[in-house]
Each structure stands twice: as C-alpha cells, then as structure tokens.
Design a binder for these strands. Structure first.
Lengths: 240, 240
DNA sequence: TACTTGACACGAACGGCGTTCGTTAATAGA
DNA sequence: TCTATTAACGAACGCCGTTCGTGTCAAGTA
C-alpha cells in the first residue's frame, strides 16, 4: 500500500500531519507504554521507532541514547508521586504513607523500578521527593543526619522491592500463566523444596519453611519499612 | 601457522592436552575472572569462549545458557561466605557480623551482586546462609516469623547495596579516572547542585546538602542495617 | 518569486550480542 | 577393529544500540 502522491491541485500546505510530529514527549510516552505493557526487556529503540512508524535513527534527534530515554521515562513516573505537607505531630505516619505512595506508583509501573536501581537518581523529581521526605522527618524531630541517610536507605528499599516485584512479573510473563496461580505455584515449590531438605543439616529451614514462604510481598515490604521507621523513631531526642 | 599433523610414530595417546579440557568448572572460573576484572557488562558467552580459546558454541555443552552461567558464578561467590555457630547471648552482634561478612564478599566481587538482584536466589549456598542466619536469630529469641522475613529483607539490603557499589565502579571504569578522585568529584558535584537549588522551594536540601552527601557507602549500609537490627531486637519477647 | 539554509527524517550499515544447526573429530565400548 | 556416543566448533540467524550520509521540506533571505 504505497502512498499515492497527492493530486497537484490540492494545496500542498500541511502535507503530512497524518503522522504526529516526532517529539521527545511522544517518544517518552511511547516508551513508557511499551515498558508497562510488555516489560522493560521489550523496550528497544527499534521497538519504540516501530510503534511510531519510523526507523530507529529518527529517535536520536530527540533523545541522546537509550540511557537518556530510560532516565526520562523514570522521571515521568516519579511525577505521579504526591507528597503531603509536614505535620510535625505525626511524622512517622506521614513518612509511612509517603513511602507506600511511592511503592504504589512503582507497582503500577512495575518494570520502571529496575531503572531506578540501575542509575543513581538525581533528576528534578527525585529531588522533589527527597525534599518532601526530609521536611517531614526534620520537622518531626528526626536528627537531620539520620533523616538524610534514611532517605537514601528508604529509596533503596522501595526500588529493590519494586525490582523484585518486576522479577516475578517477568517470570510470569515468560511462563504464560495467569498471575495468581503462577506465584502461588512458585512459592509452593519453594516450600516443598525446603521441607524436603535433610533435617539434620537444615533444621531451621525445614521447620520454619512456612514462615519463610508465606508472607506476601506487601507484608515483607511493610515489615522492612516498619523496622526502619521504628529505629528512626528511637533516634528522635524527645523520645529518649 | 596451521598445526602440523603429528608424526605417525609418536604415540597418538593424549593427542592434545595442550588446551585444558573444557569443563563447567573451568567456564565458571573464567566467567568470574572476567566479571571481577572487567565488570558484568563485559561478560558475554563470546568473551568467555575467546578467553578459553574456542568458539561460543562450545560452551553450550556445559552450560545451558547465559542465565545458568550467571547463577553458577553467583553460587561460587556465595561459597566464600562463612557463618558462625549460634551463641544465643549475642545474636545481634553475630547477625551484624554475618551480614558484614556477606557485604565484604560482595565488595570483593562487586558486579556479582547485580546477579543476585536479577534472580531470586534459591541455590544450595543461598539456603546454607538462610539456615545459618535463621539459627542465629531463633536461638537468640527472635520470633521465627520475624526472623524469616528479616532474612529476606537483609538479603535484599545487602544485594541492593552491593549493586549500588557496582554502579559506582562501572561509572568510574567508564570515566577512566582513579577510583577515589572520581567518587569524590561526583559527590562534590551533587552537593554543589543541591546548594544551588532555589532556597524557597528546596529549603531542606539546600540546608542539609552536607548531611545528604557526606556519609560514605559503608556508613549508609551500617546505618540501615542497624536500624533493622534495632527494630528486630525490639521484637525479642524478653526485651519487652 | 527564486534561491539558500538548516533542521528533521530515515535507509542502510557496523559491530556486537545470545543462541542454534549441522558437521567433524575424538573417545570409549563391544 | 568397528561402531556409537559425545565434545568441539564454524557458520549462520535474528536481535540489539548507534552512526553516517542522504534526502526532504519549511522558513528565511534576496
């Protein structure tokens, strides 16, 4: 279906608005859509170009390289995260809520989290989040030095956890099974394996296989976060 | 320099022990050496084959695919980690030491940590470590359920941290600078950037840029770990 | 109106990757 | 000594990120 040349009597102005003009914005949108629908591994310059009905070379006029594209996609996702204004009395709850909000956004865009692990985030939105969390903690009485490191550690926690989630999504995608039954089956296998270990060399694993396998991803995440927040609360001077 | 056919009067037995026989063991060793010296990104089936003076196809007789090779390399590294026998009175110190031991091993093999993040480790050595840490904690009085999740969370912490370290190593490798001056320069830039932010929109970052940037990687790691251990200690019944 | 310029678009190609196929060569067993 | 098995491997396939040189079209200039 080769394009027929436009008849000469038609005004040649606006010759091809048929294809939306290529912009960085459009490329980032398209990239994010691919990552969300098909996973990070499916994202390639060629795939994005194909989706936009052009060749890979065309993208490089708007994006320096694939790394920059990934960074732009990541920043776009961070934009979705909202932070509350500090209320000193309930800094711990606010911090917890803010972190869960981040967690939720990364759950929506599962594979994007892998990008945050692969780069040290310093874009404008990463700074906005750091500022907000710093405000909540410092106003709540957490020593600035502890708050500063805590932001780093919590960011790592969220990223690592979302990354893990994305791993399961990838395995499930590869297996072609339904999400729930796949994860259940996977954990069932691990538990069975642990129980089958020789009880003389692995007494604890065999005994507590249940405890090791059962907690859901969300429970594990909340557990780790609460450990950290509790430890942080112990460092608020008035609480000593 | 084509090989000259061996003279017929020489015993043809042991025709070519010149090249050591290809084994999985040898392939894993070679792979680990490449990862340690040139980074994970430099590891390819072709690179390993070249190092062993053969073609990439030859490797597939001993290793299913690249993922399996990575898993084998990872297991090999885990072998280096040693765990103490539990002494109930000082479970927290023992746990701390065990985790630092893991951290140290991953520092020696910086890029291998990225493998542990990309797979959910269930090999024999991963189980051995889980068993040992479970023993230390349960004998110390930590509730089994909390201990089980804590192992998961601490493992993630170590992996994420080593991953971050490997990131810096990669950036440094790419920049061609010396290790120390590069990291120092990088942090100097970030601090300067934070200080330059508009103080009305980023008051905390501008004010506490120092605290955010200064702590070393080891300090951050220890901080996060200690938060978790403190939180865990609070869950030991006798301590309530 | 005719010509120049500059930015965007893009086909083709380069060198790399993981993996597979079909063949060869060497070993071990009968 | 002949045969069955298996490790080794050259060549190729279909991907990838990226670059180069060319084409094309709109805006600016004379």
């Amino acid at each position: 279906m080769d394009p027929v040349p436009a008849p000469p009597w038609r005004k040649t102005r606006r010759a091809r608005p048929v294809k939306p003009q290529l912009t960085q914005e459009l490329i980032v949108q398209t990239g994010l859509r691919i990552v969300d629908h098909e996973g990070l591994d499916a994202l390639s310059m060629r795939r994005v170009a194909q989706e936009l009905d052009t060749g890979p070379a065309s993208l490089y006029a708007h994006v320096a390289n694939k790394d920059e594209l990934l960074e732009l996609i990541y920043e776009r996702v961070l934009e979705e995260i909202e932070l509350p204004a500090p209320e000193p009395g309930r800094w711990a709850e606010q911090l917890r809520e803010a972190v869960f909000a981040q967690h939720a956004v990364f759950s929506r865009h599962a594979d994007v989290a892998r990008v945050s692990l692969a780069n040290i985030p310093t874009g404008p939105n990463a700074l906005r989040l750091a500022e907000g969390m710093m405000a909540i903690m410092v106003e709540g009485g957490v020593p600035p030095r502890a708050a500063a490191i805590a932001i780093d550690r919590i960011g790592q926690l969220v990223a690592a956890d979302a990354h893990e989630g994305s791993l399961y999504r990838g395995m499930q995608r590869a297996s072609g099974m339904e999400s729930e039954e796949f994860v259940a089956e996977h954990f069932r296998q691990i538990e069975e394996y642990m129980r089958s270990l020789p009880a003389d060399r692995f007494p604890y694993l065999a005994r507590y296989a249940d405890e090791m396998v059962k907690p859901s991803g969300d429970e594990r995440f909340a557990f780790g976060l609460d450990l950290m927040i509790a430890g942080l609360a112990a460092q608020v001077p008035s609480a000593e």
